[in-house]
Design a protein around this nucleic acid. Structure first.
Lengths: 196, 196, 196, 196
DNA sequence: TATGAATGAGAGTTCATTCAT
DNA sequence: AATGAATGAACTCTCATTCAT
C-alpha cells in the first residue's frame, strides 16, 4: 500500500518535472534551459531533479522520447480509420495538422535534435528511426491509393517525405490557430498527394 | 588610400568571422557555439572578435540578417522571370527547393530564432517581417494565376503559407540531395498550388 | 528484556556501520567516503546512519578511536610476555609487523588524521596521546634492555620514535605479505635497537 | 623578446599556483583542497587556475610528479658521493632524514596517492615506479657493502625496503626538527643496515 | 591592431543533513 | 526505528567579456 502511494507520488513528481522540462526545452532548447529554471517551474529545488533523472541530458532524452512515442501513437491511431486508403490519408492529414497547430511545443523540441544531431547521437538515432517508421507506414497506404487511382502516381517514398516536410514546416512556423487556417492547410496539404 | 586598404582588410576579417560564425551557429546553435571556437575557425584570437562585433548576440544578429537578405535577394531574382504567373511560381519552387537541399545551413540558422523568439526579440521581428514580405510578394502572383485559372482557387494567403511551410520543412529535414529527389519534391510541392 | 534485545540489535547495527565505515575511510579517506556508500555497504539506508552517529565526523572519530584502542590493546598484550626486556621488544616487533602487513587498513585510517590534523583537532589530540603513550611505554623497556646491555645505548626516547617511524612506514608502504618478507622486516627492524 | 617575457611571466604564475597547490594538497589532501582556496593563496582568481592546468586532477598530478622528480634528484645527488659504499649509504641516510624532517610537505603529498591508489591510477603508477627505481638503485650499493663486509648480510631487496619504510615513517610522523633528534634518527636508521 | 591574460557570473552536479511518514 | 524525499551549500569547470601590452 505504502509502496503504491510512494510510487504514485514519485510518478507525479516525475511528471511535474517532465512537464516543466518539456515546456522549457521546447521554448529555449537544451543549452539555454537550466535545471534551476526547470526545477523552479516544477516547484521543487534544483537538487531534487537529480533524484528523478540522472542528469540534464537524461532528462532531455526522456522528454524527447516521450514526445516521439506520443506522436507515433497519435498517427497510428489516425491510420486505424476504416475505409479506402484515401480516407486514411485524409484522417492523418487532419489529425497531424490539428496537432501541429495546437500542440506548439511539438516540433520545437525536436528541432534542437535535428539541428545538431552530433550533440545528441542517441536521440538523433531515435528520431531517424521515428521518421523512417512513419515513412514506411505511409508508403504502402500511398501505393494502395495510387493503385485505386485515388491519388496521383509517382514515387511513394518521396510523396511520404513531401508530406512529412510539409507537416514539419507547419509545426516550425508557429502559425496561430484558426479554424479557417486549419482547413486551408488541410486542403493545400492534401493536394501534395494529388487526389483525383 | 591607406584608409581604403585598412577598410578592405577590416572587411575581409569581418567576413572571415561571419563565415565561421555562420557555420558554427547553423550547426550548433547560438548557445553551444563559443566565441573561442568561432575565432579559431576564423583564424584569429577570440579577443579580436570583439573588435568587429559588439558582442556574441550582435554577431549572431548580423549573421542571421545577412542570411535573410541573401534569401530575399534569391527569391526576388527568381520571381523576375518573364512569362505567366505560373512560370514565376515554378521558377520559385525550383529555386527554393534547390537552395534548401544544397545550402544545408540555411534553415538551421533561423530555427534557433524561430524556436525561441523571446530570446532574440530584434531578430524575431526581422524574421517575422521577412516572412510577411515573402508572403506579401507571393500573394498577388498566386491571385493572378488563379484569375488566369492556371492554379486552384482558394485563399491566396494560406496558399502562400502552405508553400512556406513546405519549403521550411524541407530545409529542416536535412534530406540528402539527389536529382531524382529534388525533382519529386518540386512536383509534389507544385501540387500545393493545384496547377491545372 | 525487550530493552536488552533492542540494545543488542542497536549494537549490532552500530557495528555494521562502523565496519563499513572503517573499510571505506581507510581505503578512500574521509572526504571521498560518502555516507551513502557506507550505508549501502552496511546494508541500511543512509538516513539511518544518523540514528547511530551524530554526523559524519562523529562516525569518523569513533572509527579512528576504536582503531587506536585496538592497537593499544594489541601492543600492550605483546608487552605482557614474560622474560628479559629484549624478549618483550622482540615480541612487540613481531606482533606489530605482522599486524601492519596483514591488517592493511590499519595505518591508512590514521594517515588522514596525521596528514591534516587541523581538520580533526580532537582526533589529532587522541592520536598524539596514543603515540605518546606508546613511546612512554616503550622507553622504560628500552632503558632496562640497555642497562642489561642487551641492546645499544642511546637516547631511549628517539629509539622508541625510530621504531615507531619504522613500523608506521611499513604500514604505509602496503607491501604484499610474505613469510620471507615479514621475517626480513623483523630482522632489520630489530637492528634499530642494536641487539648485541 | 616579448615572447620571452610572456613565457617567463607565465612560468612564474604557474609556479605560484604549483606552490600554493603543493602547500594545500600536502596539508589537506586532494579532496579537501579547493581550487578556490589554492587560487586565493596564489593571489589569482579561481578561473585563472584553469588557464595553467587542465583541471584539478591535472594540477595534482603535476604537483606530485614535480615532487617525485625533486626527491629522485636529491637522492641521486647524495649517492654520487665518492668513497666506499657505506659512505654512500651514510650520505643517503643523512640527506633523506634531513629532508624528511625539514621539508614537511614531502610525504604528506604522496600519502594521499599511496592511501587511495585506485583514485589516481596514473600517479600510483608513477609512484610505484619511483619506489622501484629507488630500491633498484639502492640494492647494488647494499650488495657491494655486504661483499666488503661493511654491513650485515641479508636480502638486499628487503634491506632497501626496510630503509624506505623507515624514512617514509619519519616523514609521516611530523616530528619537530632538532639537531639532536636528527642525529639520533640517523644513528638508529643506519643500524637497519647493520654497519660493522 | 591584435592578443594573451584575467575574471565574475553562472552552469551542472554532489552530498551531508533534515524531515515526514 | 527506519527510510525515501528534499534541499542548501559547496564544488569544479566554462565562457563572454575586459584589459594591458
Amino acid at each position: 500500500m505504502a509502496r503504491t502511494v510512494n510510487e504514485k507520488l514519485r510518478e507525479e513528481r516525475r511528471k511535474q518535472i517532465m512537464d516543466a522540462a518539456t515546456a522549457m526545452f521546447s521554448r529555449q532548447g537544451f543549452a539555454e534551459s537550466t535545471i534551476k529554471d526547470i526545477a523552479k517551474e516544477a516547484g521543487i529545488s534544483h537538487a531534487s531533479v537529480f533524484l528523478y533523472f540522472a542528469n540534464k541530458e537524461d532528462l532531455f532524452h526522456k522528454v524527447v522520447v516521450e514526445h516521439l512515442d506520443a506522436a507515433k501513437k497519435a498517427y497510428q491511431a489516425e491510420l486505424l480509420v476504416e475505409g479506402p486508403p484515401l480516407s486514411k490519408i485524409y484522417a492523418l492529414i487532419e489529425g497531424q495538422i490539428e496537432r501541429q497547430l495546437k500542440n506548439t511545443s511539438s516540433i520545437s523540441l525536436i528541432q534542437y535534435v535535428v539541428g545538431y544531431p552530433e550533440r545528441f547521437p542517441a536521440l538523433a538515432a531515435d528520431l531517424k528511426q521515428f521518421v523512417a517508421e512513419f515513412v514506411d507506414t505511409l508508403i504502402p497506404i500511398i501505393q494502395e491509393a495510387q493503385q485505386l487511382e485515388q491519388i496521383q502516381s509517382g514515387d511513394a517514398y518521396y510523396m511520404a517525405w513531401s508530406w512529412f516536410s510539409y507537416i514539419s514546416g507547419i509545426g516550425m512556423c508557429h502559425m496561430e490557430y484558426s479554424e479557417e487556417g486549419s482547413r486551408a492547410l488541410v486542403t493545400n496539404g492534401l493536394r501534395i498527394f494529388g487526389p483525383k
